[in-house]
């Protein structure tokens, strides 16, 4: 008799624990939870996967993998923001997938020095000689140019920009999902959008 939950069958009042465990692993209940928690947010998950992976067909593979993980982990879902819960799984799945696919070009999240360097390089584009305001040039950019600009962002900035502008999470939600201080989220979003703007202005024909 050890008293650990995994050995509850031998505990004096094991019945209460057994009920709890049976609920947790009941396939019917897991399926029901999965449908409530995961299915409504497939579109959001696909969009995140698409912009992290760079293309739509890989996004489906990532999303399917993420859904399997979500199903296995559905017991761990404790209510609350289902969309955020699922998209954290999608994000982690996409990162694993990216690490396998192109480990050589991947900028890991930990490389914050790289992030800062890249951001400061991409900062000031000279506006004084331009007749058209940058905001106008950005407005003219076509979808292809925007997609290429997103793909050019380093992953730490790309994920924050996508979670904010594609998935429409609040700063606070993003900070919670990525387990980052909110100041870091704001800084990465600012720098990410700044790099995007610079790329879009440069892409103007």
């Amino acid at each position: 008799m050890t008293g650990f939950p995994s050995t509850a069958r031998s505990s004096p009042n094991g019945r209460a624990d057994q009920v709890q465990i049976r609920q947790a692993v009941d396939p019917e209940r897991a399926a029901q939870l999965f449908r409530q928690v995961v299915l409504p947010h497939l579109g959001d998950g696909l969009a995140l996967a698409r912009w992290l992976a760079g293309n739509a067909s890989d996004a489906e593979d990532i999303m399917q993998d993420a859904c399997l993980r979500a199903l296995k982990a559905i017991d761990g879902y404790r209510g609350g923001n289902a969309r955020a819960w699922l998209l954290v799984i999608v994000r982690n799945t996409a990162f694993n997938w990216l690490a396998r696919q192109r480990s050589s070009t991947l900028v890991m999240v930990g490389d914050l020095a790289d992030v800062d360097d890249a951001a400061s390089e991409a900062s000031a584009t000279d506006t004084t000689l331009r007749s058209t305001p940058e905001s106008e040039l950005i407005r003219r950019a076509d979808q292809q140019a925007v997609a290429e600009a997103i793909a050019a962002l380093s992953l730490p900035m790309r994920e924050v920009v996508v979670l904010r502008d594609i998935n429409d999470f609040s700063y606070k939600e993003i900070a919670d999902m990525l387990d980052l201080p909110i100041g870091t989220v704001m800084s990465r979003l600012s720098r990410g959008r700044q790099q995007l703007a610079a790329l879009l202005v440069r892409a103007d024909p």
């Binding site: 579109g43 696909l46 969009a47 698409r50 739509a56 305001p133 940058e134 905001s135 106008e136 950005i138 407005r139 950019a141 979808q143 925007v146 997609a147 997103i150 920009v161 502008d165 594609i166 959008r193 995007l196 703007a197 879009l200």
Partner: peptide
């Protein structure tokens, strides 16, 4: 204006 335009460009991306 630049930030707002960038944000709009992202938000206008088609979503399949």
């Amino acid at each position: 204006d630049e930030i707002a335009a960038t944000r709009t460009a992202l938000r206008n991306l088609p979503r399949s």
